[in-house]
């Protein structure tokens, strides 16, 4: 139990001690029953994510980031521990509140862009908010491509479409799984700026998974570093950089200092598991 309390404390934001936790990850443990034997993906990860906070989960490939995010989305069950959303245990998807943005754009190739954005409304039997969608398409530079099919769009455009699809639902929580992982560095910067701009207007609670240290620092209020398999919470870092953030900031000493420190945490995390 002492383990629990210590890791919860280390993952709390320094600036928002009194804020209420929107999402609580409590001792999340996941062991996959693979054909080759059990795979220990997550080991007692505990952390809180606060309302309107932008948290990045950072870790090397295979450390269980997707596993954790899917559990937070209610897409699969944990082996141990639980996830609370507004204090209630997550027992399945929560389409009313939570929007999930998947690795790669994950658009449906047999639907055009607009039909893809309307897909969630169809599933929920809800009226499509035309004005909101038009505004979002405008903001993301997708106006005029409503009737294009995914294969006719660039990777960046597809990813923007998937963001519009999620935002059109007006979720209060966004869970994003390496959404820009497949994009080149320039497009990634552009998408990060776009995401921050959209977020500054609506201020959802965002959990953003990435394996890119500078992306994590650029976006986040707080960065949670996971160790390689089994994924444990190595450390949590507050990112005190002012907002709005600019690409120029990434060249400043404060940013580079954070980068060095977090890189150290990631590497010492890997070394620790190598020694074990």
């Amino acid at each position: 139990m002492s383990h629990l309390s210590s890791s919860v404390r280390s993952a709390a934001p320094a600036t928002a001690q009194c804020a209420t936790a929107k999402i609580s990850i409590l001792e999340a443990t996941k062991i996959y029953a693979a054909k080759t034997g059990p795979v220990h993906a997550l080991e007692r990860v505990s952390a809180d994510v606060y309302e309107r906070e932008f948290v990045c989960i950072l870790g090397p490939s295979g450390c269980g980031k997707t596993t954790l995010l899917w559990a937070m989305s209610g897409l699969h069950a944990l082996t141990g521990g639980e996830i609370l959303l507004d204090g209630q245990p997550v027992q399945g998807p929560r389409p009313d509140q939570v929007g999930v943005i998947f690795q790669e754009a994950n658009l449906l190739p047999w639907r055009n862009l607009l039909e893809n954005i309307e897909f969630p409304f169809e599933i929920k039997h809800q009226k499509v908010p035309r004005d909101l969608i038009v505004a979002l398409l405008e903001q993301t530079g997708l106006a005029g491509f409503e009737h294009s099919f995914p294969r006719e769009l660039s990777g960046g455009m597809q990813q923007r479409a998937s963001i519009v699809r999620a935002l059109a639902q007006a979720p209060s929580v966004l869970l994003m799984d390496e959404p820009f992982g497949a994009l080149d560095a320039f497009t990634r910067d552009e998408m990060n700026l776009l995401l921050l701009r959209l977020w500054s207007e609506s201020r959802q609670t965002i959990v953003f998974v990435t394996h890119n240290i500078s992306e994590a620092i650029f976006l986040a209020d707080r960065v949670l570093v996971l160790t390689p398999r089994p994924g444990r919470l190595a450390r949590a870092f507050d990112i005190p950089l002012p907002r709005p953030r600019t690409v120029e900031m990434t060249f400043e000493t404060e940013f580079l200092e954070l980068m060095r420190e977090i890189k150290g945490a990631v590497e010492s995390g890997s070394r620790r598991t190598l020694e074990v």
Binding site: G74, V100, F102, N106, L108, I123
Partner: peptide, 21 residues
């Protein structure tokens, strides 16, 4: 799996997943 998960994340039923995915 990713497309099924997408539909699930919006609360799709098994039947909806069948027809729409």
């Amino acid at each position: 799996l990713a497309k099924i998960a997408l539909a699930r994340s919006y609360g799709a039923s098994t039947l909806q997943i069948f027809w729409k995915i």
